[in-house]
Amino acid sequence: MNQGFCQLTSEQIANYMTAVERFQPTVDMNGANRVWECTVIAARGMIVKNNAKLEQAINGLTAVFDYVSDGGGFYTDGSFLQHSKHPYTGGYGKALLSELTSLLYVLGGSKCSVTAPGVRNVYNWIYDSFETVDGVEKSSASGWSETMPGVHWAHIAGDNSGRDIGYYFPGGWMIKGLRETRTGSWNEIQRTGSAEPLTRTYQNL
């Protein structure tokens, strides 16, 4: 626990937590702002030992996990919008992912673990939405294509821990990046495989 927090009196803690409840009593925003709201409410719930507040925060996260077809949030093609219409993958999108994974880690393994089915989409976001070239976030939209000269390094986030891919180009190199959505079935490459069509977004360098 933070040393400064330990030095607070019970009265000071109660006063601060009352102020937090006054200004952040509910979850009513979306995207990264919603995750921040849930984090504040969850933290207060843990400090004052209020299970109802923890449940409120956890339930508030459910809407964040779902893919959207319009407005703000993550799309199945890897793009992310904040404030309904602004592409913000490298800004609000990255902040959402950072704050959300921290909160999931804190709650994980406890009675308050997040069990919403959509939580598995977080792994997909990492794989589908984030690529960095020479420190610059690249577009997450399906159909993005760019030829980049003089590249020294590139990083593509994997779909799970330990599956990231990194590239280093001594002296700089011209590379082409492509993000596209493909549809196919296992049966097309192995006759004993399923014929059910699968659609995924792929990132190539």
Rank of each mutant, 00 (worst) to 15 (best):
M1N: 09
N2Y: 02
N2M: 08
F5I: 14
L8F: 14
S10V: 11
I13N: 02
E21Y: 05
R22T: 14
F23M: 07
P25L: 08
M29L: 14
R34T: 01
E37M: 10
E37P: 04
E37I: 09
C38G: 04
T39V: 09
I41S: 05
A42I: 09
A43P: 00
R44P: 02
M46F: 10
I47T: 08
V48D: 07
K49Y: 00
N50A: 08
N50T: 01
L61M: 13
L61S: 07
V64C: 11
G71T: 12
G71Q: 09
G73Y: 04
F80C: 11
Y88E: 06
G90H: 05
K94A: 15
A95K: 02
E99C: 09
Y105S: 11
G108V: 01
S110V: 02
C112T: 06
N124R: 15
D128I: 05
S129P: 04
E131I: 12
V133S: 00
D134T: 12
V136I: 15
V136N: 06
V136H: 05
V136C: 04
K138S: 00
S140Q: 02
S142G: 15
W144T: 13
T147H: 02
P149T: 10
P149I: 08
H152F: 01
H152I: 05
H155Q: 07
I156D: 06
I156E: 07
D159M: 14
D159V: 12
S161N: 11
S161L: 11
R163T: 14
Y168I: 12
F169G: 04
P170E: 11
G171Q: 03
G171E: 05
K176M: 04
G177S: 10
G177R: 15
E180M: 07
T181C: 03
T181G: 02
R182K: 14
T183S: 06
N187E: 09
N187S: 12
E188V: 07
Q190H: 13
Q190A: 11
Q190L: 11
T192Q: 11
G193Y: 06
E196S: 07
P197S: 05
T199P: 07
N204L: 13
L205I: 13
